[in-house]
Amino acid sequence: MISAHEPGTSMVHRTPVGAKLLALFVLAGAVFVLGSPLWLGVLCGVVLFGYALARIPARRWLRTARALLMLAVFVFALQWWLLGGQAALVVCLRLVTALAAANLVTLTTPVDDVVSAVERWVRPLRRFGVRPESVGLLVGLTMQAVATLSGIAGEVREAAKARGAERSVTAFAVPFLVRTLRHADELGEALAARGAPDR
């Protein structure tokens, strides 16, 4: 399955999904509450240390760093103009710290692990009719639908072009939605035929 995950065996990779998410939420909260550039700088350093600890290969973190840097420069310039230098620095540190931390969690956690973690977490909801094992299935079904709809989008765009309407939003969106709804009906029938509960 396509994802942003970078396989590895480091301590960060081996930390359970729940712990990583908890750490991320605590960190994100702290980033919002703290207003001092010094403390924000320390947190930012901690996150960067996490990257080193996870031994993320250079090509991956360089790409992230470049995107973050571009965003940070833009945001810094804008905030400096609107709010002044000190505030701009605080905003940029918040931004870089939070984004880098979230990205680190995503990089070090395979989708399948998150899926099984979510399945574990929703187990208590069983008595409300939620079936934990359906989480993984939802992921698979949606990814399959993305592939099908991408094909349909291509066909519809071609048809719009053949009608001389390649610039018309309606000529693309309406047939695309009609075929999307029909595909949903077919999928619904296929699921019902295979024993999913129907009304």
Binding site: V156, E158, A159, R163, A165, S168, A171, V178
Partner: peptide, 8 residues
């Protein structure tokens, strides 16, 4: 598939 082409 005519559905691709029908806009209105």
């Amino acid at each position: 598939n005519p559905d691709s082409q029908i806009v209105m």
